[in-house]
Design a binder for these strands. Structure first.
Lengths: 214, 214
DNA sequence: AGGTTATGTGTACCGTGTACACATGTGTTT
DNA sequence: AAACACATGTGTACACGGTACACATAACCT
């Protein structure tokens, strides 16, 4: 009971053994609790039970650690989307399925933003090109990252005739804009404390708008 | 040429005379150049030519200064919207005018986000309820803040029959979500360096989506 | 003139990121 | 096994930022 921060588990060996991982875990915990700004190097090392500078053997600097945390957060977003997709019935007709897929992506995004506001904020704190990268640490079980999952859903929609080809290009950004914007309003914006039912309702309304307007 | 930061104008009087204002100006300059995180108390006092603690006679703390800067940024957003609205022709038919009004709001928002990314980011860094407040420092020449301008445009649309009454409630948030999301993607997101023509194009496409889907 | 108040100064402390030199294990080569 | 290089953690140190507290000085008001 002589540990102050959280899990500084007095280590007996000079070597930590798994420091990079411990720092990442700590960083994730910090991000979860307080968003990207809460990911503070010194606190992470404290939780890992090492001296501050030890972190520099595993991360170039604070931002490097933050990016690692962000990758994790992105993979969690992907998983949230995949979880929604998994509940769909492909036999419900190609168009319906495609539309539901797009909605599932949006719903997963919004759900995650609500369930894990800190990680959500971290995931998109510095949205550097996630589009064309195949970093598996940012992907879900499907191997796709959030952006790629959205693209896939939009492809389904286009293939099913639910989205005219001339409007397919860049559709990711339109859909993403809408959902991301709402997620922000709900998680840290003026729609903050909105109760669950209304939250779900406005989310669905927004997805209606996207579906109709895309 | 003995001044390092920017305009530390060696003052001869003990009293500054207009410190609150000077700090605000400095804060705005910092925000303009680097967004909310760049608004740093000590730097503002440096530019004003006073000692760090002098700031506390005019602002409770750093955040208080930041909020003042944010209010200014919001008023600039409102002005950008008003500038777009001013170019409209009310004689073009009620519906068309109403639709153009909504588009003007969106366009002004997007333009400002592009022209002043730092201030834009600052304006919405902590979107605390701007809806029902009448702080004139956050308003444009019309006396309305950005949210209120949007509401007004949507009212016009509803009055002109362009938006069914049952879908009027909360429409602000749907439109705002979409435009805000895109502004983020364009200003700090993956759509960052997008050339002007394409930027305009995707902006209009997004507004099409909102108009169709609202 | 004397007191009260507003505004700027000096000093000081804490937390954060990070550079640099040093210590201590681990693994490899002879 | 001894020697050495390398990887990884430690100690010390500095700069920067926010901010508390006591003090100085000027403006204002009897």
């Amino acid at each position: 009971m002589s540990d102050t921060p959280s899990s500084p588990r007095r280590r007996t060996t000079y070597r930590h053994g798994d420091l990079r991982n411990a720092l990442l875990e700590a960083g994730i915990a910090l991000a979860r609790a307080g968003g990207p700004d809460a990911v503070v190097l010194r606190e992470a090392t404290r939780q890992a039970g090492v001296v501050p500078n030890a972190a520099y053997r595993h991360f170039a600097n604070r931002d490097d650690l933050l990016q690692a945390v962000r990758s994790y957060a992105l993979s969690q977003v992907a998983r949230a989307m995949e979880a929604e997709l998994a509940g769909l019935d492909p036999a419900a007709g190609a168009l319906r399925w495609a539309q539901d897929s797009v909605r599932a992506i949006g719903t997963g995004y919004l759900r995650f933003a609500h369930a894990e506001p800190g990680l959500f904020k971290t995931a998109f704190s510095s949205h550097e090109g996630v589009e064309g990268d195949n970093d598996p640490t940012r992907a879900g079980d499907s191997g796709m990252n959030p952006f790629q999952l959205l693209s896939m859903a939009l492809n389904r929609l286009a293939d099913a005739g639910g989205l005219p080809p001339e409007r397919r290009l860049g559709a990711e950004y339109l859909a993403w804009s809408a959902v991301h914007g709402l997620a922000l309003l709900l998680s840290e914006g003026p729609l903050h404390g909105m109760p669950e039912p209304q939250r779900m309702m406005i989310g669905q309304r927004l997805l209606d708008m996207v579906e109709k307007g895309l």
